[in-house]
């Protein structure tokens, strides 16, 4: 059948649903074993963070779209959580092979890593559903939930979100071309503007690398 924008969107939604229908809302046995291998078991903090951020997300979603759509926000968030656990497991498997490491205590107890990964997973779900207004379950298309809305909701710096994107794409082989293109556009937008906001961790990184190179240079103030 000829590909139309609506059909492409439907394919994306169906593809995402295929991936996530079999995924779990909770960490898999494989993930639990990675957690158990950690010096500090991160399981409770991961579950607590998913719940806390979920409450914030649902509240912001309902504020943005309308209280009548709170349940839709909840469903979107849970799809994001399923994708989050699925990609986390895939990432750990590849890191295990790459680094020959089994103890991921530092990474799995890193709050920014988890928030970035979860934000990326939820962004994929939001972009998938946002792509086709008619599929928005009646959501008012005027409400702009597109990127970088998720960064503000989860109080995440754009540069930290940026750091997870490429590994996310590598870890989830079933992302559609549209989804990968969307994440790439996010990357470009972050690098072209969002990462250069005055409170961005990118400036710390630049300073650290300059200090390492022995150049005590001050990052230029951002132009207003």
């Amino acid at each position: 059948l000829p590909q139309t924008p609506v059909r492409a969107a439907m394919n994306t939604i169906q593809q995402l649903m295929m991936i996530l229908n079999s995924a779990s809302d909770k960490p898999s046995d494989n993930l639990i074993s990675y957690f158990n291998n950690c010096t500090v078991n991160p399981k409770e903090s991961i579950l607590a963070r998913v719940e806390n951020l979920g409450n914030i997300f649902k509240e912001k979603f309902a504020e943005a779209v309308g209280q009548g759509c709170a349940e839709i926000g909840s469903q979107r968030y849970m799809l994001g959580v399923r994708l989050y656990y699925r990609v986390m497991e895939s990432m750990l498997k590849s890191e295990e092979e790459r680094l020959s490491v089994h103890n991921f205590s530092k990474l799995l107890n890193n709050n920014i890593f988890h928030t970035s990964l979860l934000a990326c997973a939820v962004e994929v779900v939001m972009a998938t559903y946002g792509r086709n207004a008619s599929q928005n379950d009646g959501i008012n298309t005027e409400t702009n939930l597109s990127f970088p809305w998720i960064l503000n909701v989860l109080d995440l710096k754009a540069f930290d979100f940026y750091k997870v994107i490429e590994s996310f794409i590598k870890a989830e082989a079933n992302l559609t071309r549209e989804m990968i293109k969307h994440l790439e556009r996010c990357e470009h937008r972050i690098m072209e503007s969002l990462a250069w906001q005055s409170d961005s961790p990118l400036f710390d990184l630049i300073k650290q690398s300059k200090d390492r190179e022995g150049q005590a240079d001050q990052p230029e103030p951002t132009c207003t």
Binding site: L107, K163, V164, R177, I180, K181
Partner: peptide, 21 residues
């Protein structure tokens, strides 16, 4: 995905990016 431009170098992964290597 052939048309995504991978930029991470050899030996760079999620652990290094989040300073957890």
């Amino acid at each position: 995905p052939q048309d995504y431009h991978f930029g991470l170098e050899e030996g760079e992964g999620i652990s290094e990016l989040f300073d957890c290597d």
